[in-house]
Design a protein around this nucleic acid. Structure first.
Length: 494
RNA sequence: GCCCCCAUCGACUAGAGGCCUAGGUCACCACUCUUUCAAGGUGGUAGCACCGGUUCGAUUCCGGUUGGGGGCGCCA
């Protein structure tokens, strides 16, 4: 039975890199009908916060991941929060202490720092010097009397440690290059290294899939597994996610939290798909996958060893692709909060209005790249247009107005505002008067929508309806609306 | 400084000794479609970091150099 875990620490919002790690673990688990579990690594009292844990779960859910065991859903290997497992760590660290595989270290941070700088300058070795390895009883008693609170260090044996990584292959480390690391902090809480190993062993994790930044930590973990006489899980270290400048992805690169992408209007399925393509590729070169296809195709063997640059452009392209194939009804549902926040729709919109919005979304669907484009592109319909002085100058020239006023008269007599009929009318108008269609179409578009882009002109007029179309046209011809470029819409209410 | 990993177009990648005149996707450019913005179609620009081996033959295997990333915390 495959058992994998995602183990974030609640010290911030879910990050793109971490989300990708979570995703790969999820895909691997589902592919092998295994267990995907969520463990909260909150042993850093300073930085951990419950709000972040909550946010973490929300963001993971938004991405479309679900887990079989975790702090919220329970399971047979709980608790799933490290802060609730301290008794387990204590038990095992005591055991290591008794067996002589670990020892108490009384060095203070200041002493450590000082010796480290010296060692670095002299020998180029930054690790712990092993000073407390063989303290005598009297030395210990003296330290205790001073009131020093010891940490527990693992006694690293000088042997060769081999890692058979599922992605990186065979990697060798020498014990000499690893210094005795801390497994229990002076506050009694385990360090990351100890907690992961104890938890992975107790939770019977079979595959540890994590970022490459942990590759160098792996020999430590292997040593601990051995010391605890536990079988080793398999390791798989995924390549890192980098920013465009090839450094670790961080705030400097703009949006990096999953939450930020959600707020920017990205669709979870598109994000899911894009993330899967970062450092992984299918044999066939297929790039667009449903969740099920991804689960079927996924394999650690096809994971790239090279660090991958997170590419917003490709994400945006892919999101647009998903936007185009998402049913308009769902698009409306997802963008409703945005439309309301911008005051384009009331809190309780009538079903009739919603139906027209959906229709408009369908009309404009192929142009949306993100959900945030929806308010921008359909706003003209929901509130009076705001006229950009530049567009006015360019398209609503005196000549154009003359044409529009002639056209307005024609449209007054148009009984039905149906796209095909309107097109017919306007085109024959052009022909009769010998106007170049472009000279009519563009000013008309700007006059009724305030934009040079938008749905098909006649669809737009039909959707707006005769009354509103003529009202907007009239208002433009009477010069009522051109003062409103800045303060937003003193035109007639929609 | 020491240890580890990595190295194909600007980006993501395919490639596991001859199938490579190095393929696909994003981006970019051109053309096309078109009442606008898109989307679509067609075509194009662009890459095996470098130096040595091994081999009849290296993008592919080995070694080195360079470059990038990561680790060396009482952070995770």
């Amino acid at each position: 039975m495959v058992r994998v875990r995602f183990a974030p620490s609640p010290t911030g919002y879910l990050h793109v890199g971490n989300a990708r790690t979570a995703l790969f673990n999820y895909l691997f688990a589902r592919k092998h009908n295994g267990c995907f579990l969520l463990r909260i690594e909150d042993t850093d009292r300073e930085r951990s916060a419950v709000e972040y844990e909550k946010a973490l779960l929300e963001d993971l859910h938004w991405l479309g991941l679900d887990w079989d065991e975790g702090p919220d859903v329970g399971g047979n290997y709980g608790p799933y929060r490290q802060s609730e497992r301290v008794h387990l760590y204590r038990q095992l660290s005591e055991k290591l202490l008794q067996e002589g595989l670990a020892y108490r270290c009384y060095c203070t941070k200041e002493e450590l720092q000082e010796r480290k700088e010296k060692a670095l300058a002299e020998k180029g070795n930054a690790g712990y010097d092993g000073r407390c390895r063989n303290l005598t009883r009297t030395q210990i008693a003296a330290y205790e009397k001073e009131g020093r609170k010891p940490v527990v260090r693992f006694l690293v044996p000088s042997e060769t440690i081999e890692v058979n990584d599922l992605i990186r292959g065979h990697v060798v480390f020498e014990g000499e290059t690893i210094s005795d690391f801390v497994i229990v902090k002076s506050d009694g809480l385990p360090t990351f290294h100890f907690a992961v190993v104890v938890d992975d062993l107790l939770m019977q994790i079979t595959h540890v899939i994590r970022g490459e930044d942990h590759l160098s930590n792996t020999p430590k973990h292997i040593l601990l597994f051995r010391a605890l006489k536990a079988p080793l899980p398999q390791f798989a270290h995924m390549s890192m996610t980098l920013g465009p400048d090839r450094t670790r992805l961080s705030k400097r690169h703009g949006a990096t939290s999953i939450r930020a992408f959600k707020e920017a209007g990205y669709l979870p399925e598109a994000f899911f798909n894009y993330l899967a393509l970062l450092g992984w590729a299918s044999t066939e070169g297929q790039e667009i996958f449903t969740r099920e296809e991804l689960i079927r195709e996924f394999s650690l063997k096809r994971c790239s060893k090279t660090a991958a640059v997170f590419d917003h452009q490709k994400l945006l392209w892919m999101n647009g692709l998903y936007m185009r194939k998402t049913p308009p009804a769902r698009l409306l549902e997802l963008s409703l909060p945005l439309l309301q926040a911008q005051g384009l729709l009331p809190a309780q919109p009538e079903t009739k209005l919603l139906a027209r919005c959906e229709r408009l979304i369908a009309l404009e669907q192929e142009k949306f790249k993100t959900l945030s484009d929806i308010p921008e592109r359909i706003g003209f319909f929901l509130k009076p247009p705001v006229y950009d002085p530049e567009l006015v100058e360019k398209y609503l020239t005196p000549a154009a107005r003359q044409i529009l006023s002639e056209l307005a008269t024609v449209l007054e007599n148009q009984p039905e505002f149906q796209p095909a009929l309107l097109e017919n009318t306007v085109r024959s108008f052009c022909q009769e008067k010998n106007y170049r269609p472009a000279l009519v179409f563009h000013p008309l578009r700007v006059a009724i929508s305030g934009m040079t882009k938008g749905p098909g002109l006649f669809e737009m007029m039909a959707l707006l309806g005769k009354e509103e179309t003529l009202r907007r046209l009239g208002s433009v011809l009477r010069n009522e609306t051109f003062r409103t470029g800045k303060d937003g819409g003193a035109g007639p209410a929609a």
